[in-house]
Nucleic acid binder design. Structure first.
Lengths: 238, 238
DNA sequence: CGTCATATTGACTTTAGTCAATAGAAGTGG
DNA sequence: CCACTTCTATTGACTAAAGTCAATATGACG
């Protein structure tokens, strides 16, 4: 469970024994939450950051006019709101798309890392930078891609992230998001999402099955989306 | 010139004499660049991060289909690509909207900060988190605000950032961006930007004058945009 | 005074949104 | 196991926001 965190931070640079021990000591016991539950609220200033252990989380902003924009998706192993360590109050909320387990890391302990483990600190900064890089990719989609491409791009991203987390099984991964939720991710209406998904199915890019998504040929989907996985930094860098 | 950087990092937490000295030693001599010049290229892995001293910079992604999305704007004092310290290669390019001066900070020196100045390190993390928060705000706009609101929101953001940087003079600030550039920021066509700007002028929200923008009543503009400056974290936090 | 870039306009097309109804599927209590 | 509620997906008809294309100003500048 803390394994995922160690693996993730190692993706920036290999950790010494000492560093690794420090990372292992970070999170508290995971807690269970129900589907739809909000685990961090916009405007609050939590004293801990969340690590998703199990399930699916998303960050979002609710607008006065009743709409909302989902800002990120998080799969197990993700440091969901690492930034709240330095930036408060929260400018958005965090909720769970399915029943999930969440571990918390007290900011106090992060401060100790920064004070004593420069290598791990860089790993944390790398994770924050990766989060921002994903934000940028979503901005590009929201600004310059059409509905079909946005959805295709999202599915590509999740395909690769899921695979990296060891959660991709034979071209398929869990995707327990409703069409209105996909709409709030892609900045679309749910009706338009529905029609775009139908086109993608017709084109053989995806197959939907219960809460699962099947991608028969990731190359075809990537081509349709203009997807380049570089921004996910899936391979560790020297 | 390095003043702006010290002031910015102090916004997270006051710096000790020692810390402040370390920050002052960071940037190299500023260099001059021409309008339109690209100072960092997508795909490269620079060994330095840029601080804008004078002028106006923006980060952007060019798409295969000839369009582009501008991802951020930077005014003097901004650490434009601090993230390149930990995340490479660059997933976007940086260019200058007007003739500008740019100072560079070797990543080596940032590494020394992380190793020896935890307080400054947190300031750097805070700056990265602030960058991501602005990304999120833009995502919300691109996904859920219409053209009129997007432009109004952008102008509000620049109004406050410019004021914080001491560059707002009597309700007006320099805004040397063409309508096609505004379009690439807001994910719109330049024609639609033109028409939206006309409506904003008619509504008395803005006055455009050469490369300047005049905001007679920031409250009115903010109301039109649904703008809340909280995400800019203009006041330092205890 | 001509040139280049930027801004503006008009006419038309396209993408996406809205509203409202219908159809399925999953879960619950009896 | 079945009726019932509820959530989610789908469809049709219509509207609206934004894009495209192409022409025409406008304005800064050498």
């Amino acid at each position: 469970m803390v394994e995922a965190l160690v693996r993730k931070l190692s993706r920036y640079a290999p950790l010494s024994h000492d560093d690794e021990a420090a990372v292992r000591a970070l999170p508290t016991l995971p807690q269970d939450y129900a589907k739809g539950q909000q685990i961090v609220e916009e405007g609050s200033s939590p004293a801990e950051s969340c690590v998703l252990v199990t399930g699916l989380a998303f960050r979002y902003r609710a607008l006065p006019n009743g709409t909302r924009q989902i800002l990120s998706l998080h799969i197990p192993g993700d440091f969901v709101d690492l930034h709240s360590f330095v930036l408060h109050p929260m400018d958005h909320s965090i909720a769970l798309a399915v029943p999930s387990q969440v571990a918390r890391v007290p900011h106090q302990r992060l401060m100790e890392i920064v004070a004593a483990h420069p290598q791990v600190t860089c790993g944390l900064m790398w994770d924050m930078a990766l989060d921002a890089a994903t934000h940028r990719e979503w901005m590009v989609g929201l600004g310059r891609r059409d509905a079909y491409e946005r959805l295709a791009h999202l599915f590509c991203e999740l395909y690769y992230r899921t695979r990296m987390a060891g959660l991709l099984h034979d071209h398929r991964f869990e995707l327990p998001l409703s069409q209105p939720e996909l709409a709030d991710i892609c900045g679309l209406s749910s009706v338009h999402v529905n029609r775009s998904l139908q086109m993608m199915r017709r084109d053989g890019l995806i197959v939907t099955e219960k809460g699962w998504l099947i991608v028969p040929e990731i190359e075809k989907l990537s081509a349709a989306a203009g997807f380049d996985p570089a921004y996910l930094h899936l391979i560790s860098r020297p």
